[in-house]
Design a protein around this nucleic acid. Sequence first.
RNA 1: AGGCGCGUGGCUCAGUGGUAGAGCGCUUCCUUGACACGGAAGAGGUCGGUGGUUCAAUUCCACCCGCGCCUACCA
Length: 877
Amino acid sequence: MELDPGQHFESRAAEEKWDRLWREQGVHRFDEGSAAPTFVIDTPPPTVSGSLHVGHVFSYTQTDVLARHQRMNGRNVFYPMGWDDNGLPTERRVQNYFHVRCDPAVPYERAFAMEASPSDGGTKTPPRKISRGNFIELCLALTAEDEKAFKSLWQRLGLSVDWSQEYSTISDRSRRLAQLSFLDLFRKGHVYNLEAPTMWDVDFRTAVAQAEVEDRSQKGAFHNIRFGMEDGDGSFVIATTRPELLPACVAVAAHPEDQRYASLLGRRAVTPVFKAPVPVFASPLVDREKGTGILMVCTFGDATDVLWWREQSLPLRQILGRDGRLMPVEFGSASFPSLDPAAANAAYGPLAGRTVKEAQKGIVELLRDPAGAATADGAPPLVSEPQPIEHPVKFFEKGDRALEFITTRQWFVRLMDRKADLLEAGDRISWHPDFMRLRYRSWTENLQLDWCISRQRYFGVPFPVWYPVTTSGESDFERPILADAAALPVDPTTDAPPGYEAFQRDQPGGFRAEGDVFDTWFTSSLTPQIASGWSLAPERHRKLFPMDLRPQSHEIIRTWAFYTIVKALLHENTIPWRHVAISGWVLDPDRKKMSKSKGNVVTPMHLLDQYGADAVRYWSLSAKLGTDTAFDEKVLKVGRRLVTKLFNAAKFVLSQSGPEGPISSPLDLAFVARLQDCVARASEALDAFEYAAALDTIERFFWGSFTDTYVELVKGRARGESDPEGRASALATLRLALSVQLRLFAPFVPYITEEIWSWTLARSEGQPSIHRAPWPRAEELLGGRASGADAEVFTTAVVFLDAVRRAKSAAGATVGRQLSRLRLAAHPTTADGLKKSLGDLVAAARVEDLSIERRPGMEVGILEVLECQLAEMPPER
RNA sequence: AGGCGCGUGGCUCAGUGGUAGAGCGCUUCCUUGACACGGAAGAGGUCGGUGGUUCAAUUCCACCCGCGCCUACCA
């Protein structure tokens, strides 16, 4: 080892060197053959279609520190990394990046290549339409690039991932397992397909599940519209925020106890403009206080409409198409009855093809016209100007326009009949922090719909399903044809089902592909099974599943955590993991969530360059689980300072030459006893996943007890010639303390600790990598060495050192200044304590004549400086 | 609207039924033999508010205020 004075730790060089060596030597490798207890992590596969930001660094480092601790603790750690590349985020990114749209009608092009589109320059050229096959190729190509960026960040950060366990959610194996999952659920009766009103995003043109829906407060307006009665007797005014759905009105509802409308119940009303006769029924779900207390039921304005439609067996009048525009309809037909079909068709005609927003304008105009009145008085149906309101509206979380309820055929996983089991499963899992279990609970309790798993998209895992085509050319959805498990993964749009030939595709008596893909969560909810191999590797699966730890962030408890629990329950009637660790978010300095759209994202690479990976890790690890933290560069500086201090302290310890001997000096024994206490507390915290508390404990000990005090106190003895036994004891203590503290720090700051370890400890401790060295244990410190230590000796010495420093500072002298005379007063107990390490104290204080007055009246543990005489300054050198 | 979390020195955060903690920032001092990417000494807080329990409350309880999130609320 060559250590030059003034040498600094070069973090960048160390990161490259050690990261490479760790991989070459398989330091983080899961040992398939080992019988050692395992620790299995269900690593979150990052969505690779997003930009990197410090939030990624933050949460992934928090998992890594637990993995590293468990590994040093002797566990056979399984720590894989996956990439979540399938799904809408990738599709959207490809659409924007290449300025393309997928159109399954376009034929596949071989040797297809595209350049990134230069941001369209506002030219408004329509996106190029490309085939499904080519679209998927672009998705794969782009995600491959993104995965590289993530991987290099993870490696730079020093995540102790076992890279031989890498997977991606669009890979053959993931597709195969996702399709196996579907087959298993089908066989067990947990999935079904159904044509029903479903929440639909009109821009992405796909169904979405309840878990992906969020409420957004939107501006709207109550429109008060007068309806007539079919028998001409009376009228009433409904209030609606969606007048454009008037043509789809199928009923009117009022509260059963509302006297105002009691006379209307059971009779038939007539809609204005379209003159459709509709029943008036009573429902306790109607809020008498809201609007006018009576409302129109449409197919479909909201979830309550869907409920009433089912409950009252109302007819379906779907006017909204999958593209969010009004479809052409024929009034006077069986499905769209009207008392005045000619007028109704004349009114509706211009609305067909319009968006919801445009249609609303058109309808409001019609409602202002007395001609549309459903009553005899001939007054305009819109009885007053619209009253603006703010109200919550359901959106797809990634969407820009409100969701609509549109009747389509979709596949669902039954959840509503398993809520009790799901709640019980959540309770069997340990949540960190514990209160996070409430988010799971409240989500599960409030679940209202089965899980819609089909998406009308392209870059995803296809359903392994075909339908028989009847002789009349219809798909028989009741008798789906499932793929053979052995044939998976399949793509039904290109593969033929078992028992059929390719030429029978779309032919009467043949088959038709299910063209949908799975909800990405259908695959993501299998990350434990994908990592373990599940039914493809039963032996391995048994060893790895249920897993130990699922780390994730809180906003996806309702999706990722929830669906993973669902799958484990439905497939194997178990929980997927024993612990869930929920990381917080990194907020910007104004405490706002970082997001690309807000432009407040802090990217990690420059921070790694500027402060080093260990410092960035330090920042990540100083925040507790579950707690959102404002990004603060100051903490990075503190981390860098710790790295430097470790480097220098180690340099000092390892440059002290001389033989070690038994640890015998009272001060050394007392210090080792303290170290032992630190080890115990840090270990306890880490075992409970409280890495931040552990770091705090270790760091506090390192600065407070080690560098600032113990090292200063024994420097003289470690270098002195006069006391060989004392010197040998000091050297042994310093080296033990370094070894132990390095190992305590190793999971947190793996690079600097490995660097120092490599100087001499790798050889003397018989373990080439500190990350495979044993986590410190109390026994190793005891071993007869610290037993019988008088811990007070150290405490008293600290008090002494403080008093001397204060006295010198008050006298305007430096810490290193010699004292000719120092007189102290203390309680006899304290004075006796001081005597036990007197030699060290005299040397540390650099005092020639030290005397301690015994005063029984004083408080124990307090020192009073009676006199402090500075020595003559040495002559100028 | 219900639930959960948070509110501690200028900033970022720990913590605790018994005279308040850290780091950064600030003031003063110091190139000393591991470290100026450092060290020493200091100033700075009635721990969101009001009640209650207790010998004692920043900590426990109730209510309130502010912020954040979760769930619900679409007529």
